[in-house]
Amino acid sequence: MGLMAASKAFFKLLFNKELSESFQQLVDGRLQPKLESKPAKPVRKSEPKPKRSDAISLLSALQREARFLDIVSESLGDYSDAQVGAAARDVLRDSGKVIERMFSLRPLTEVEDGASIETPSNFDPAEYRLTGNVSGDGPFSGNVAHHGWKATKCDVPQWSGNKKTEMIVAPIEVEIA
């Protein structure tokens, strides 16, 4: 029981920044433990869940819903443009749905391509990338070459499998006759 609680605490501290900071303070003696009488919660039997990289979960969703990995892994040289186009139409449509659902991508600016735009004077280079004749600190004005993208959310599926299978992106499919 004690080992279980300790290992639960370990994973909590590992993944929760706020909690691990107060734990550090507690160990350093800077923080007095708050005593609260909470109703005893039923102890969950399960082991702490392993965490898998969101990148693998995203790949897995793109393959499952859109066959994305199949199309990018295939050698395009073997096929005509029409064949590639026919397959790509469905894959692109379904990939787009997955990405929209998980990230809700929106242009970073409402200004259309080719129209003029003015940057703030102290802009973040992560937000604007200037090309051409740049001198001084700005503000700058120029034409939009690309409207940029931003994700308005990041809702990648949670995964609850075990350590052994965390790198599996798509299972083997077997048809039983």
Binding site: D70, I71, E74, D78, Q83, A86, A87, R89, D90
Partner: peptide, 16 residues
């Protein structure tokens, strides 16, 4: 409107 059925195996483009 074109309707496609993708190849079942990992050879997707050829089977479409």
């Amino acid at each position: 409107h074109s309707v496609s059925v993708l190849g079942r195996g990992s050879k997707l483009i050829g089977g479409t």
